[in-house]
Nucleic acid binder design. Structure first.
Length: 497
RNA sequence: GGUCGGAUGGCCGAGUGGCUAGGCUGAGCUCUGCAAAAGCUCCUACAGCGGUUCGAAUCCGCUUUCGACCUCCA
């Protein structure tokens, strides 16, 4: 609302007041997935985090261009083989088929987590000319050199010219300069170990290859993001995000490339999400310490006791700040599940007219308290998107909602306007900003609702006759198939367990 | 080894130089035919050792310990 948005900028390691370059407009680039394998949960956490950030910025009224790339080329394996090519060999598919398959899978997962699509989702392979142009610009500026068909970024010259290499990731240039790595391919072509390839000549067996002024080859590791962010957001834009593990070398080199080509850094605010942990360690495809989204959803993992549907997993993720690590434990997931249900129940109360009719026509004594809670939610979000704190304030709101529902006298202490405010703001945050939605039910909603009303009606007759045995049998049987009945003075309600 | 970031109650997790986040679990109570839900109450922690301060979990130093990055990784 009125308070100023603060963002923790990785560049300065401080929270800064966010001021967009162009008033009211934001350009945001987030590093997307490499589509040579199924998405893992860690990716999901990062993209869920940025989704909430994106949604909150939208809610604040900004016009945003949100760009998130798909990396389908250009990353080397340890053995020097292109990732996409390796995937192709394993699956006996065309490289682009592999990319498409996993891109589809990624999109499905983003939909399951109810994240909004970026405005542009560019693919690295679709921007080879732009990348070649950028290589040429860097060469023209004297910050790269060609060696046997490959082009390398000249970190020594870059450091001499700008003295800013290592700023983002906190590297010490002197250390970098003495560093030496011997297991790197084409080491002998480099003038210095810290130089990195921006164009790589393809070996004979390399499948993904494009023509260029230097060789038939493919773009370097970090070039795509530089080229595509520049193309769609301009040479300087507002926010650049990604996982913490991309800080070095990926983002550091990205900055160098942009400065090398355009003369200035690409983004004003760099945001990094922290890692999702499993057993206290980073989830990692290459180390095998992982639990897949599907395993979580289906409960098929040694690490968990039961299945956790996507929205519960998402809610679990939101309970930690994006810059904190989050360790997956069964206990924490159980807590998230209970909380999720609590929120869904509150939403149901809000959407019924019950409380509205009890609220006061005049200013109520509780109004101030409610407004305070709502203000706290906004303040939490404005303070570097503190979602967990915002959620804790929403628990206060839920407590008020529940008391209103239980107690018409309590409800009458809140004015109609403020009750409406509770409803509006709760839905804004829960649905629009956190992007939580009802976990899909297996059966058709309307039919179930009708059947349940009938059963509740019949059971009411039984209860009026004080036939508790029959009444309990209905309730117990329903419970066995996952439906919970709740009796109260106002009647009986039902919900899925 | 270098760089960076953590260490908060049974568990998860915010935050701050003094005004005891929040949630989950556990115990008790209210409501209720009994359940369930909800409400109320209780369990009050900041790794250790020094220092700065009227006052530190919050600032500084050291120690222990964990993690991330330094190599593809969200």
């Amino acid at each position: 609302m009125d308070s100023q948005l603060k963002i923790f900028n990785s560049l300065t390691r401080e929270k800064e007041i966010f001021i967009p370059i162009q008033s009211g407009r934001i350009g945001m680039y987030v590093c997307g997935p490499t589509v040579y394998n199924d998405v893992h949960l860690g990716n999901c956490r990062t993209f869920v985090s940025f989704d909430v950030i994106y949604r909150y910025l939208l809610h604040k009224g900004y016009t945003i261009r949100y760009v998130r790339n798909i990396t389908d080329v250009g990353h080397l394996l340890d053995d020097g083989e292109d990732r996409m090519a390796k995937g192709a060999r394993l699956d006996q598919l065309e490289p682009m088929e592999v990319a498409q398959k996993y891109t589809n899978g990624f999109h499905d997962m983003m939909r399951i987590f109810n994240t909004k699509s970026p405005n542009i989702e560019p693919r690295a392979t679709g921007h080879i000319p732009e990348q070649i142009e950028m290589v040429q610009s860097i060469l023209d500026n004297g910050l790269a050199y060609e060696a046997q068909g490959s082009v390398y970024f000249d970190t020594l010259k870059f450091i001499k010219k700008y003295n800013s290499y290592g700023k983002l990731s906190g590297r010490i240039v002197e250390d970098l300069l003495v560093e030496s790595r011997d297991n790197l391919k084409n080491q002998e072509e480099k003038r210095h170990p810290s130089d990195f390839a921006i164009w790589i000549k393809a070996s004979e067996e390399h499948i993904m290859r494009w023509n260029s002024p230097w060789s038939i080859g493919f773009p370097g590791w970090h070039l795509e993001c530089s080229a595509m962010s520049t193309k769609y957001l301009g040479e300087t834009f507002d926010i650049h995000g990604g996982g913490n593990d991309l800080k070095f070398p990926h983002h550091e080199n990205e900055v160098a490339q942009n400065m090398g080509a355009c003369g200035h850094a690409p983004a004003r605010y760099w945001m990094h999400t922290n890692m999702l942990l499993l057993n206290g360690r980073k989830m990692s495809k290459s180390e095998g310490n992982t639990i897949s989204p599907e395993e979580l959803f289906e409960g098929k993992s040694q690490h968990i006791s039961k299945a956790y549907p996507p929205m519960i997993v998402k809610f679990f993720m939101l309970q930690a700040h994006y810059r904190s690590t989050l360790d997956i434990t069964d206990e924490a997931l159980v807590a998230a599940e209970i909380n999720y249900k609590k929120f869904m129940e509150a939403q149901r109360i809000i959407n019924s007219n019950l409380v509205a009719q009890w609220s006061s026509n005049e200013i109520g004594p509780k109004d101030v308290e409610v407004k305070e809670v709502i203000r706290n939610i906004y303040e939490a979000m404005d303070d570097d998107f503190n979602v967990p704190l915002a959620i804790s304030e929403m628990h206060q709101l839920i407590s008020i909602i529940n008391q209103c529902k239980n107690n018409s006298e309590y409800a009458s202490q809140i004015s109609q306007g403020v009750w409406k405010m509770i409803c509006t703001e709760f839905n804004i945050f829960f649905q629009d900003i956190f992007g939580i939605q009802e976990q899909g039910s297996s059966s058709d909603g309307q039919t179930t609702e009708g059947l349940m009303q009938l059963i509740i009606e019949l059971r009411k007759d039984v209860r009026e006759r004080k036939d508790w045995a029959a009444s309990d049998k209905i309730r117990d049987s329903l419970k066995e198939i996952g439906i919970q009945l709740k009796d109260s003075k106002e009647g009986t309600e039902w919900g899925e367990i």
